[in-house]
Amino acid sequence: MVNEVLFWVVAIITVTGSLSLLFARKGAHIAMSIVTVMCGLAAAYVGLGAPFLGVVQIVVYTGAVMMLFLFVLMLVGVDQRESLKETIKGQRWIALVGAGGIALLLISVIGRVELTSSDQFTDGNPEEIAIELFSQYVLVMEVLGALLITAAVGALVLTHTPRLTPRRTQVELQAARILAGADPVNKPMPGVYARHNALDVPALDPEGNPIDHSVSRVLEARHQTQEGAEFRHQLADPDNPDHDAKPADAPPRDAHDRNPRQGEGESR
């Protein structure tokens, strides 16, 4: 006969898990509790002598179907709020009465049935299931294969969005950027060409003028930038005490071997 402890464990796991469908708020919580319900049902299948179905239940339902549910849940946004306002008046009570009526009807009918359990123990192992599937039910298997292919193609068609405009190549994108007045090359980095090597100072172009757009717009909006002109004055004015200011380990300004390139000195 059927193991009594297993039945009660399965019953508690599945009923409490599925009640989250009615009372839990967040979709991800509901999905995870349905996963536990599926696992409990798999245990019930194994206890009822259907080990193959138990494994298939875990692989198909908890592994594929519920993960697909979670995937779609994340795709449409987990914070989709469910409005609690009733659009149909009294719908909640009608639904509860209807569901309770179904439960009462089914349980009262099932309670009257007296079925003597067969002593023959069915072992639904893969081998016997396969023999049955591919002998008596082989036509159904073929039809199911067609159904699965149709479903896959249908899902592709349903989620496909046709391209309304021709695809733009990289060359066209770049040409459009130039036409819009963008720089053909990267923007200069802030500060690196100036005496002050920091993000808050604009770079200087070869003539010594500050390049304003080399500083991040965020810093400008916060008024955390410094004027490049101040440093340009230091360079231009020989009397300024900071005129010769340079980092401690920098070579002398007049040194000929500044930034020597390999082999360049010998060739000259």
Binding site: S18, L21, V37, A95, G98, A99, G100, A103
Partner: peptide
């Protein structure tokens, strides 16, 4: 019972 919960 599970069927009724699902229907609800």
């Amino acid at each position: 019972i599970l069927f009724s919960i699902g229907a609800a």
